[in-house]
């Protein structure tokens, strides 16, 4: 039951990605191209997502536990370090080069474009690289 629920949740998220235009690298790169073919649509994606999540999370957290019994696992760290800033800066560079981010690429895989599979394979190589460069177990916050 939990897995069916997770699958449907992924379907809702992926449908959002598809409707929003996030899975189209042409559109994503144009969002960042303020000096050129600027397409501000993706600001609306973030706006829509944030409003729902901001209020939705607060409603959910009135409960003691999640539906399937788990406690809520929310990152509590407030440490701003070189790892956070440097990692995020690097992520932006890669996003600006490829036009895909992980959350958009996973649903985009379902369109059957081979470039998406290539991108996700490269992302996985990047995960391994991180483990080699800095073996400290980084608890993924997200």
């Amino acid at each position: 039951m939990k897995h069916l629920y997770a699958l449907l949740t992924g379907l809702v998220f992926g449908t959002g990605i598809a409707l929003s235009g996030m899975m189209d690298p042409a559109k994503v790169l144009n969002f960042f191209d303020v000096a050129g073919a600027w397409d501000p649509s993706l600001a609306f994606v973030m706006g829509g997502a944030l409003v729902v999540t901001f209020f939705g999370y607060r409603l959910v957290w009135r409960r003691d536990t999640a539906l399937f019994g788990a406690r809520f696992q929310v990152p509590t760290s407030t440490t701003i370090d070189a790892r956070l800033v440097g990692g995020s800066a690097l992520f932006g560079v890669g996003w600006g080069i490829a036009g895909f981010c992980p959350g958009a690429a996973i649903p985009a895989l379902g369109t059957g474009h081979w470039e998406v599979a290539l991108f996700l394979a490269a992302v996985t190589v990047g995960f391994f690289l991180r483990r080699v460069l800095s073996p400290m177990p980084a608890k993924a916050a997200s």
Partner: peptide, 10 residues
């Protein structure tokens, strides 16, 4: 781009 995304995001 993909390798940089994977490295940076993690």
């Amino acid at each position: 781009g993909g390798v940089i995304v994977g490295l940076g995001a993690s």
